[in-house]
Design a protein around this nucleic acid. Sequence first.
DNA 1: TTTATAAAACCGACCAGACGGTTTGTAAAG
DNA 2: CTTTACAAACCGTCTGGTCGGTTTTATAAA
Lengths: 212, 212
Amino acid sequence: MDNATRSERSRNAALEAAIAIIARDGPGRLTLDAIARESGLSKGGVMHQFRTKEAVLKALLERQMAHFEEFSTDYMARVRATSANPNLATQLATVREAATSPNSAALALVAAMVENPNLMALPREREMRRMAAIREEAADPDLAMLRWAGAMGLLLSSLFGMSPLSKDEHQRLFARLLDDAQWTGLERPAASRAAKSGAAPGAKAATRRKRA
Amino acid sequence: MDNATRSERSRNAALEAAIAIIARDGPGRLTLDAIARESGLSKGGVMHQFRTKEAVLKALLERQMAHFEEFSTDYMARVRATSANPNLATQLATVREAATSPNSAALALVAAMVENPNLMALPREREMRRMAAIREEAADPDLAMLRWAGAMGLLLSSLFGMSPLSKDEHQRLFARLLDDAQWTGLERPAASRAAKSGAAPGAKAATRRKRA
DNA sequence: TTTATAAAACCGACCAGACGGTTTGTAAAG
DNA sequence: CTTTACAAACCGTCTGGTCGGTTTTATAAA
């Protein structure tokens, strides 16, 4: 077998094992020995691919982020033309995806937070940029943030096992969050922001797109 | 000093120390030795008050839950008469309180989840009962759930350090979540609840059914 | 009030196992 | 023959938990 793909396979096995462990036993049980056991590799093998445990977490985080990055990009490409607020739509759909997929990125996030809280710097920064984009394009930025927060709440509460909602109800709520038509009734034009953006005509911020 | 209060003081010191450690160093750094160091007690002293580490976590969880239980009861007593949906209002206010207070219950939750995920059984059950009450009283149960989810999203995202919102914005969003008047525009009469006695929950709700 | 006794709170040394990480050795790929 | 991928034994430290002993409080007889 090719050397590169051999490494690739091992790295993959280790990361899959890590996710399985976190999901099954909780983040506190994620140890290098456990990863070795679960993946079939020896501890030496794991340590050859990742020099330190933090490197494992980092790789895990990056892999999950890349996955959702891809999902996000695809979704964005599909709705950019049709949606009035493509960034919000994309983010909502991505969070739904994360909530649906069992080996969620959220698990990696929790594990990272446990081991080394400042590993979250990367995801945080990315998330913040997205939030900024959402607010830029929104007619009512606060409402957009609340829709985003609603999605996060659904995701995290189900991750923490605190959601009383069935799968169906979950999907229904996400669908409602995503449906712009259901939120148009109570928009508040965000006077503060309109005033801040200089000579902007006061009313409809939704028509003002980001740099075209 | 009285014997009972001596114990009380020690238990308190240990729990305070635990919260401080979690907040400062992350849940992964919460060890019995660390608690002993931080609290000034000896390890033996800590182990006398709590026979096991799990007992510490459990006590921590229960203390925080009791605190918010009290807040919740007080708030409920104040708004029960005036609010159309006192359960929702109370829950939103409680979550805001949790998000505001620095030594949040959420920290205890995360720590418990790390150490022993099934410790979350108690909070989960309580939460579920509340959610049920919220849905009972709501004209549009799904919307109520989304407002709740929004609050949870704000809380948890700020807990994870992923909130781009300032304190002021945070407060503003919570206020908006709490203000019934801002959500009456798009209520849907909850066909699900009315028709639920049948069998089909899953109808594609995308078609908007607004109410006057 | 004093004194004898118990019970509870507390200490700090100690232990077995688990932890992250290193080292040494070997087989496969280049 | 050199480099890379992996294995397995190993190391020092940390972890949750135990244990024997000391101090403080509680009880009550003298």
